[in-house]
Amino acid sequence: MLDIIHSPPEGSEELVTMILQTLTEESNPSANLVVAVKHLYETKLKDASILIPLLSSFPKEEVLPIFPRLVDLSPDRFQDALARILQGSAHTGPALTPAEVLIAIHDINPEKDKVPLKKVIDACTACFEQRTVFTQQVLEKALNKLVDNVPIPLLFMRTVIQALDAFPALVDFVMGILSRLVNKQIWKMPKLWVGFLKLAYQTQPRSFDVLLQLPPPQLEVALNKYPNLRPHLSSFVNRQNLHNKLPRHTLNILGFVNEPQQAPMPFAPAALQTADATSSLPGANIM
């Protein structure tokens, strides 16, 4: 069988994969087999499917470089790969923890790694379908790490929303994430800003404290996008008696303060203005 793996006939990817599955079903792959398959993948068969049967024996350092290629597989194949990665070997444990899997998915750059964005989204969805593996604690750990990535991953807000849908008890944690995003000036990241506003709207009134942390111009953007927020946020400020703690501009946006208008200049006849001006000239009162 190793001969077939070393020199597979053209178009024999499925056959090679079946052989590898048979060889690894009840025992760990031998070192020779691992070397042969890696060589085959790197030189002839650029199909990451042939690596799936061996993934449980791969360390983290070998899984991460090929992870985008695994995500680019069909959903069924990715599920197989995910199971192997999380299973790991009896000696070393899983190649990646569930939190590391989520982080690795978000680290994929669709353009740079040549993975369709939909495939990355599908990979995230596959994780959320396994709630006994990708638990609330796993999501907290992954999101805590991802929020500090530079740049913040494109799908970050989508995943935060998914996480809260799956585990409503995460709401306080998510408010902390939103507050950190305010500190990171999330409004300067247009695609993430849209998700931030959507989540803030969906989680009202819990999100009111976060919204009031926004600079006035960004708060105004939020209230213009979701006009229904304004009266509820104003009521919240009243109930919490926050008037003395908020910037005047914020209070103005919420309708508590009207900017004073400049008083009009008093009208004076032109002749009187001329006389007043003349009387102030040196020597004007000397007669």
Rank of each mutant, 00 (worst) to 15 (best):
E25Y: 01
K38V: 04
A36N: 08
E25F: 05
K44I: 04
V16T: 01
Y41M: 09
M18T: 08
V34P: 05
K44E: 05
T24N: 09
Q21N: 11
L23E: 03
Q21P: 06
H39Y: 04
L33K: 01
E42A: 14
E14H: 10
V35M: 11
E14V: 10
I19P: 01
L20K: 00
T43L: 12
S27E: 12
A36T: 06
I19V: 11
H39L: 09
L40A: 09
T43Q: 14
E42D: 14
S30D: 01
E26R: 12
V37K: 09
E42F: 07
A36G: 14
E25L: 11
T22C: 11
A36F: 02
P29M: 06
L20G: 02
E25P: 10
N28R: 08
T17D: 02
E25A: 14
V37S: 15
E42R: 13
N32C: 06
P29V: 00
E14I: 10
T24H: 08
L20P: 01
T24F: 03
N32G: 12
K46S: 14
E42L: 13
Q21L: 11
Q21Y: 08
V16M: 03
L40Q: 05
L40E: 00
T24S: 11
V34S: 09
E14P: 02
V35D: 14
E26P: 13
V35Q: 15
L15I: 02
A31S: 14
T22E: 10
S30L: 03
V16C: 12
Y41R: 09
L45P: 13
K38R: 15
P29W: 02
A31T: 09
N28Y: 07
N28D: 14
V34Q: 05
L33E: 05
E26F: 13
H39A: 12
S30A: 07
L45W: 03
I19A: 07
T24A: 11
L23A: 10
I19C: 07
V37C: 14
I19W: 00
Q21K: 12
L33S: 11
L45S: 15
V34I: 13
H39R: 10
E42W: 03
L20N: 01
Q21D: 09
Q21H: 06
K44T: 07
P29Y: 01
V16L: 05
N32H: 10
V16P: 01
H39T: 03
K38L: 15
M18K: 13
S30T: 08
M18V: 08
A36Y: 04
N32Q: 09
L20W: 00
N28L: 13
K46H: 14
T43I: 07
S27H: 03
P29R: 04
L15S: 07
L15N: 06
P29D: 06
V37W: 01
T43E: 09
N32P: 09
Y41H: 14
Q21S: 10
L45G: 15
L33Q: 04
L15K: 05
